[in-house]
Amino acid sequence: MADDETDAVLVARAAAGDAAAFDLLVGRWKDRLLRLALRFFRRREDAEEIVQEVFLRLHRAAATWRSDAPFEHWLLRIATNLCRDRLRERRRRPEVSLADLSDDVAGWLDAALRGASLEAARAEAARVLAAGLLDSLPPKDRMVLVLLDLEGMSAADVAAVTGSTRAAVKVRAMRARRALRRLAAGGGTGARGGTAAGRGTAAGGGTDE
C-alpha cells in the first residue's frame, strides 16, 4: 500500500479490516501523539500508554469517523480527552507539596523562572517541580494553554479538538492565564511566603471541570 494515501483513505480501509492501513496510520501519527502526551506526563511510559490507548480507540471507532471533519482533529480529540482524564485522576491523588522545599531547591526553580540557565541536573529538577505546579491547574485549562501557546494551534483548532467553541476557548484561556500567573507568582494556590515559584502546596488552585 502506498504511503502517500490520505488519512481518510487509510481510516476507511482500517475500518474495513485492513491491518496494513492501520499500521500506516500508527506510523504516521504515533510520534506526534507522543510529543503531545509528553507535555502532560513526564514519564515516557505514561505518555506511551496514552498513545497506545488512542490507537486502540481508533481501532474500535474507525468506522464512526466522518470524513467531513479533519482526521487530525478527531485523533487529537481522542488524545486530549484521554490526557484530561488521566490528569484528573492524578489531581485526586495526594497533592504535591512544595512547602518543604529547601531554599536551595526553591532557588533553582526561581532562577529557572527568571530565564536563567541552569546546569543539567538542576534544570531537570526545576522541570519536575514546574510540572508538579502545573498539575494543580484544572486539566481543561492546562490543555487549552498547552494547545494554544506551546503547540501553536489557533483558537478555532483548539475548539475543534476539545469539542468546544472558539469563544469558550478564548474565555478559558484568559482564565487559565490568570491562574497560571497566580501560580507563578507564588500566590493563589495556598503558597506560603514570598519565595517565587509558589513555595507551598502546589495543588488546590482553581476548580476542575
Binding site: R42, R114, L183
Partner: peptide, 15 residues
Amino acid sequence: TALRAALLLRLGSDR
C-alpha cells in the same frame, strides 16, 4: 509575572 507564568508553563511542559 506574565514572563514567569510563560516560563513555568514551558518548563513544566517541556519535552
